[in-house]
Computed example of a mutant assay.
Amino acid sequence: MQALSLTIEKEFAQNSERIKSVDLHPTEPWVLVSLYSGAVCIWNYQSQTMEKSFKVTESPVRSAKFVAREHWIVTAADDTFIRVYNYDTTEKIKEFEAHTDYIRSVTVHPTLPYLLSCSDDNVIKLWDWEKDWSCTQIFEGHSHYVMQVAFNPNDTNTFSSASLDGTVKVWRIGSAGPEFTLEDHLKGVNCVHYFIRDNKTYLLSGSDDFTVKVWDYETKSCVQTLEGHEHNVTALCVHPELPIIITASEDGNVHIWHAATFRLEKRLSYDLERVWTIAHSKGSDKVAFGFDKGIVVVKMNGHVDLQA
């Protein structure tokens, strides 16, 4: 058996109106929260106080991310606009209409001045902020809403996308069509995340079929299906420091899976209704969850004996 000892302590909890996204700052004790009401706020989970709060739009802000190297927050909303703010001053730096339908999520390139956005208009767009936020590429190929995009940490010229057409597609910046498509889910796919284990690349995808699939990136095959959620899987990630997979669902539960055995190790419930979003930060033991009725930041410590 491969033994996992894991302690999870609640660091911060705050009741809130409906949360659509959370993001953790890489160096400050801040969690960025975007709300269905169209506002964003930054909570300090150490001092348990709100640092900033401001209204972005009248529409739901489905995605908000820190760009720490620029001292920015980037927001994307149902009104089809992307907006950029300086998080020190809350001054709006840029605002532009990015898509023709709701923007589901944005993701920031780890090193280059790039932002990816994906939308209910079925396309993904690449934006270059050093070129005054010009759209440098449009990625077409999905036949339904594109829910999430994620950069490949091993090859940041490539990224994957999750769509309600039931597929995960892998793309390369500069190439017109997808490199390949993964099809095994029975319903729409809401979230996607890269997973590196033993120098091998895997993809995780979470779906409205209530399952999470683990894909071998090289063979393009599904190697494991994680079953246990009782409703749509809305968010997932691999813990940046511990070999665990974290998944969240509209069933209100967070599941912790052993990343080597894929066994369900823990089920967390905070009675805040549906879970919509998870955030983590490299080098940090903190994980944030956003729910219909609030936010929870937990500290995760653990040890996995893979030779046990």
Rank of each mutant, 00 (worst) to 15 (best):
A64I: 09
K55G: 03
P60Y: 03
D23S: 15
E51R: 13
P26T: 06
K55C: 06
S47H: 02
S34G: 01
E51P: 01
P60W: 10
S53D: 13
V22D: 02
I42E: 08
S34I: 05
V33E: 04
S53W: 12
C41N: 12
K20A: 07
S34E: 00
A64Y: 06
G38Q: 02
S53M: 14
S53H: 15
S37K: 05
D23C: 10
L35N: 10
S34A: 07
A64L: 08
T49S: 08
M50G: 14
T27Q: 14
P26A: 10
Q48L: 15
M50I: 12
E51A: 13
M50S: 13
E58L: 13
I42W: 07
M50L: 14
S37L: 03
S21A: 10
Q48C: 12
L35H: 11
S21E: 06
L32I: 07
K52I: 03
R62T: 04
V22L: 02
G38C: 05
Y45C: 04
V22G: 01
H25F: 07
V61D: 04
C41D: 13
P26D: 14
K65Q: 08
E58A: 15
V31G: 04
S37V: 03
S34N: 00
E51Y: 13
L24M: 01
E51W: 11
T57Y: 05
H25C: 09
I42T: 12
P29F: 00
P60C: 10
T57K: 06
D23M: 06
S59P: 01
F54T: 07
P26I: 10
S21H: 06
K20R: 13
P26Y: 14
